[in-house]
Each structure stands twice: as C-alpha cells, then as structure tokens.
Design a protein around this nucleic acid. Sequence first.
DNA 1: CAACACTTGACAGTGTGCTGTCAAAATGAC
DNA 2: GTCATTTTGACAGCACACTGTCAAGTGTTG
Lengths: 163, 163
Amino acid sequence: MSEVEPRAEVEPRTEAGDVLTEVIMRTFRLYGGFLEAAEVMTKPVGLTAAWWQVLGAVLREPLPVSGIAREMSLTRQSVQRIADLLVEKGLAEYLPNPAHKRAKLFRPTAAGYQAVSSLAQAQHAFTNRISAQVDVDDLRTTLKVMERLVKALDADEWPPQDT
Amino acid sequence: MSEVEPRAEVEPRTEAGDVLTEVIMRTFRLYGGFLEAAEVMTKPVGLTAAWWQVLGAVLREPLPVSGIAREMSLTRQSVQRIADLLVEKGLAEYLPNPAHKRAKLFRPTAAGYQAVSSLAQAQHAFTNRISAQVDVDDLRTTLKVMERLVKALDADEWPPQDT
DNA sequence: CAACACTTGACAGTGTGCTGTCAAAATGAC
DNA sequence: GTCATTTTGACAGCACACTGTCAAGTGTTG
C-alpha cells in the first residue's frame, strides 16, 4: 500500500472509538445525575454526598484520615476538611491512636451510624427503582465493560511511545 | 400475601439494584479517569478540560455566554469566568452582538481553532486506543444502557409518591 | 408609552477537590 | 542509638461549579 508518513499521520477514527466517545459523554451525564441523586438523598439527613462517602469509609473500622484518603484515592487534605466538619456536627469523633500519636482514629458516632443507615435505605430504594428500567443482563454487560475500561485507563499512563 | 406495613417497610435490595450500585461506583471512577485523560491531552496545548469544553461549544457558530451555558447545562457564571480567561489568553474573542447590547458573541480566534483541532487528534487517538480493548458489541450495549439510565434519571425527579 | 417580567453580565460568597509547603512524628537503615 | 526518609496534620492558595443579588438591557402586554 502507501508508504508511512510519520509526520502528517492523521488518526483515522475507528467505529469503536466513536462509540466510546458517546459512552464518555454519557459517563459525564450519568456522573452528574448520580451526584444529584445523592444530594437529594442526603439533604434530609443533613449530610452532603462527600460527607456520606467519608463516613461510609469508616463504618466497619476506625481509620486515620490519611488511611481513608488512601483507601478512596483522595487527598489527605480533602478528607481532613470533611472529617473535621463531621466531628463538628457530632456525626463522628476522633479517638487516640495507640499506634500513632498524630494520626488520630476517625469513627462515626451513634448519630453518624444512624444517618448512614437511613441513607442506605434511600440508596437501595433508588437503585431498585432505576435498575428496574433496564435489562439486567445488559446491565451486567455494562458493568463488565466499565470494569474493562477502568482497567484500560489505569494501564494507559500514556506511555510516550517507545521511550 | 402479607399486609402492607407502611412505616417499617424495609427496601429489599434487588439483584439488579446491586448491579446498578456497582455500575454507579464504576461511573465515578470512569469520570475521574476520563477527566484525567482530558487534562493530560489538554496540557500540551495550554488549555484545561473546562476550557476545551467551552471552546468546543462555539466551533460552529458564535454564541453569547449565557447561550453556551444553556446549551451545556452549566451556569452563566461558570462559563463567563472561563470565557473571560480564554479571551485573556487570546484563544477567543467577543464580538458585538447586533441583537443584544450586553450579550456579546463569543467565538474562538484562529489560535483557538488550532488548539481545538489538535485536541481532536489527541482525542481520537485516545478513544481508538482504549476502545480497542473492549468488545464493540458490548460497548454498544453499554451505550444503550447508559442512555436508558440517563433517561431514567431525568424522569426520576423523585416525584413525592402520588402528589 | 408605561409597567411588568425576563434575560444578561457583574460581583460576592460557598463547597469540593486539587497542589504545594512546613514541621512534628514515625519508620527504616546503618 | 543516630540519622535520613516517609508519613502525617496544618496551613495557604488555585480551579471549577454552584447560589444569590443587583442593575442594565430586552420583550411583552395593557
């Protein structure tokens, strides 16, 4: 066929690539929609989506702030701010950490547990309601594809070609 | 069957609901991943993901800031800030609007067009690369499901039951 | 034309996440 | 035990999107 032209090489847009572009746009819309739904759910309980997430990370066992950040791949600083707010609102508390003098353990209070468990209710109602409107097998396929995509993205540190 | 117990009614967690919960978590991860990819792509061009989005909205025809905001369901204020920055960087400009004295028309400059078109290249390379790692039919199914979910979310303004 | 409602840009403030820097505490190597 | 490295919390600053308020401009209606 024709020779390679290394400079003017125009990327040819595959069909799969076009579908993925559409998927990406839906991902953004869904992200917004799910976030909004989370805010609707959390409002009556007096939380925000972010607080819910942080509180949810320490339901099973207390963790230092930096540990929470690591577990959900956020920065210490973001989690710290929210954790302080949660303590201020009485939904969580800091415990002395026998293993580390600075890194106090973070844990929900009774009020915190109660808020989260009532949110779990709302969340199940929500996911049941929405998922009832799609084919379950297709939904499983979707989950499988999304897992593949997450993996592909993680592996795609955009290796600068052949270096 | 058993009578209705309107108060203590515990939501029973359907299987589809559980799958959707997983899908939601992947949605958040993918959102983060795609956003990061966009930032990697835009950095060499001197843009950010948000700037790209705003610039992309006026490729075909100039629009006032409020029109852009409306088209991409953002607030006027967010778009205004970015539009001002883009003008400051010489990537876009304001034109007098014959139809409205205050609402100037926003449009990319030649430099802006060039930046966006080079980004289109990078974006195609990216989507081709990633989409090659999943089954195309499954990807189409995913798109279909996501469209259904977007629709379901939009319709789910959480109508307070029967009011 | 006058009075009204709506749109628009400007300005101020909030929430969420990020990066960067610093010092104290903990850890690991020697 | 000592010293360099890493982890951690605290503090400061930035990007992005939001809400709310105000005045100027536009349009609609009587």
